[in-house]
């Protein structure tokens, strides 16, 4: 299953809940959620640890818009819009967390 998160992890607990609930598959961070993919924040440890069971992706254009395309948490993969489409089509189900 693909989980899509669009809320800043500093404002909403969505990312944290998702990382704990999800049993496997992929997570894609878009819009304000891309801040969760950046290295050097207080959330890095938690996000990084989730990679034992989840593959993490982040949407490049949203990172670049926010000036955050510097250092990402190791293991997180940056993708473009075509990669987004790919990711959706590769998964049987998809959940956009509200």
């Amino acid at each position: 299953m693909l989980h899509i998160i669009n809320k800043s992890p500093f404002v909403s607990s969505t990312l944290e809940t998702c990382l704990e609930v999800a049993t496997g598959g992929s997570v894609l961070l878009i819009e304000d959620a891309v801040y969760g993919a950046v290295a050097g924040t207080i959330l890095e440890k938690k996000v990084s640890a989730a990679q034992t069971k989840l593959k993490l992706h982040v949407l490049g254009p949203d990172l670049e818009a926010r000036g955050m395309s510097g250092a990402l948490i190791p293991g997180v993969e940056k993708i473009d819009y075509a990669g987004f489409v790919d990711l959706v089509s590769r998964h049987k189900t998809c959940q956009s967390w509200l």
């Binding site: 304000d32 254009p61 818009a65 926010r66 000036g67 955050m68 473009d80």
Partner: peptide, 14 residues
């Protein structure tokens, strides 16, 4: 998160 408004290097083309 307001501090992110002032982050250098923003590029919104995409």
């Amino acid at each position: 998160d307001g501090v992110y408004q002032l982050k250098k290097g923003q590029n919104t083309k995409g």
